[in-house]
């Protein structure tokens, strides 16, 4: 297991270096950072001095090494627009996005997996067909439409839940959480549902397809021949064999959700990273964009690695050490 972990981590580090190269190239060569930082009255000498001070006259490799070294320490420079440390800006916004994505993911699994099992087990029943049809709607509706409809129904018409913002937050260390206050939780409901709609249908369809396959296998039939009750066969024996692709999908999708929560964040004016990024794009705030790119990539890579490790945990056949005959404690 240890060798496996080390191998995965090395892979991840390599990918991150490549991404850093990309982010650095954008940061350094798309537009002139000096032009964006100085005001219009600056003289040529001022610019040259700033260029020297920022180290922009150094060789490519030196600059790249410096960028990576700083990035590893969480230093992405100063935002052009806010004149604030980029990491502080992102650190302020990250908890909001993360909590939104986390809740949306939990919803998509808790709702999607049972729906998938039900549609597979009772296929061709009226309920399953209705769910299938509903899932097509869920997949095809853009999330901003879902968001707007939710706001219309639950905020405007019924007035049950807030339409925008994050409610009150509580600071736990540097992490500002909305999960601990009633208004924070209420504000989370609609954006989370809106963000999870697509995920639910994705998970449901995946679980359904996998279950249909698994239910035909010999070990499912044999489990029934052993007298295992049908429900236990379906929800324990078959479902566990379907979870591998669900884990992959969820892992990949968490990255996607974080990166693309910006639509939902815009609709609900959710003060997360997505909103920050939209603003950064508007003002060509390159340090923020570079940091965002790095962070999102990091999340993707970290999730990929975590998914691989989880595989090994779910499927004993992938653990290196149990493959040896007699390895009793897998």
């Amino acid at each position: 297991m240890l060798a496996f972990l080390i191998k995965r981590t090395a892979n991840a580090a390599f990918v991150m270096l490549a991404v850093a190269l990309l982010a650095f190239t954008i940061f350094r060569f798309f537009g002139d950072p000096v032009e964006m930082m100085v005001n219009e009255q600056a003289t040529q000498a001022d610019r040259a001095e700033l260029r020297e001070r920022l180290g922009l006259n150094d060789g490519f490799v030196t600059q790249y090494t410096r960028f990576v070294t700083n990035a590893v320490q969480g230093d992405f420079g100063i935002s052009y627009r806010n004149q604030q440390d980029v990491m502080v800006l992102i650190g302020d916004r990250f908890p909001a996005t993360f909590e939104l994505v986390l809740v949306a993911t939990v919803i998509s699994l808790v709702v999607g997996i049972p729906l998938g099992v039900i549609t597979a087990v009772h296929r061709d029943s009226r309920l399953a067909n209705a769910l299938q049809l509903g899932s097509i709607v869920g997949v095809s509706l853009p999330s901003f439409v879902v968001g707007i409809m939710l706001i219309l129904a639950f905020s405007v018409t019924l007035g049950w839940l807030p339409a925008f913002g994050r409610g009150e937050t509580v600071d736990v260390g540097w992490w500002s959480t909305g999960l601990l206050t009633p208004s924070g939780r209420a504000a989370l409901v609609l954006p989370a549902i809106s963000l999870s709609t697509f995920q639910i249908t994705l998970v449901m369809r995946l679980v359904r397809a996998e279950m249909l396959e698994t239910l035909r296998t010999d070990y499912v039939k044999f489990a029934r021949a052993r007298g295992v009750p049908a429900a236990r066969v379906q929800w324990v024996h078959a479902l566990r064999n379907c979870l591998m692709p669900v884990i992959t999908l969820t892992g990949m999708q968490i990255g996607n959700l974080i990166a693309f929560a910006l639509v939902t964040e815009t609709v609900f004016q959710w003060p997360g990273m997505g909103l920050l990024f939209i603003q950064a794009v508007t003002f060509v705030d390159i340090p923020v964009m570079a940091a965002y790119l790095m962070l999102v990539s990091f999340i993707f890579v970290a999730l990929n690695t975590a998914v691989d490790v989880t595989y090994a945990w779910v499927d004993p056949r992938l653990r290196d050490d149990t493959a040896k005959a007699g390895g009793a404690n897998g």
Partner: peptide, 22 residues
């Protein structure tokens, strides 16, 4: 379900696929 496994045991063709791998 109370008959299968208790009063009638079964052995299937392919032992490689009869057991749940997980």
């Amino acid at each position: 379900q109370a008959v299968r496994g208790r009063r009638i045991g079964a052995i299937f063709q392919d032992p490689l696929t009869s057991l749940n791998p997980l």
